[in-house]
Simulated assay, not measured.
Amino acid sequence: MRHTRTLTRRAALAAASVTAALVLAACGNDGGHSTGSGEAGGHGSSSSSAGADAAAGAHNAQDVSFAQGMIPHHRQALEMAGLAAERASSAQVKDLAARVEKAQDPEIKTMSGWLKSWGEDVPTSSDSSAESMPGMDHSTSGMPGMDHSTSGMPGMMDGSDMDELEKASGADFDTMFLTMMIEHHKGAVEMATTEKAKGKYGAATSMADDIVTAQTAEIAEMNKLLGKS
Rank of each mutant, 00 (worst) to 15 (best):
T4M: 14
T4H: 14
T6W: 02
L7H: 05
R9A: 11
A11H: 03
A12F: 13
V18R: 15
T19Q: 06
A21V: 11
A21D: 01
L24M: 10
A26Y: 05
C27N: 13
D30V: 14
H33K: 11
S34R: 12
S34Y: 15
T35I: 10
T35L: 09
G36E: 13
G36H: 14
G38I: 09
A40S: 11
G41R: 08
G51P: 06
A52P: 03
A54I: 03
G57I: 00
A58Y: 05
H59T: 01
Q62V: 06
D63Q: 04
V64C: 00
G69W: 00
P72L: 05
R75C: 00
R75M: 10
E79Y: 08
M80G: 02
M80K: 04
L83C: 06
R87W: 04
A88K: 05
S90M: 06
K94S: 12
A97T: 07
A97I: 04
E101R: 11
A103D: 03
Q104V: 01
E107P: 02
I108S: 02
L115T: 07
G119D: 12
S126D: 15
D127S: 06
H138T: 15
T140H: 15
M143E: 14
P144R: 12
G145R: 08
D147R: 02
T150W: 11
S151Q: 11
S151C: 04
P154V: 03
G155T: 11
S160P: 02
D161M: 08
E164K: 15
A168C: 04
A171D: 12
M176H: 09
M176G: 03
E183A: 15
V189R: 02
M191S: 15
T193A: 13
A197L: 11
K198G: 04
A204L: 04
A204I: 11
M207E: 13
V212L: 05
T216A: 07
A220D: 12
K224P: 06
K224M: 04
L225G: 00
G227Y: 01
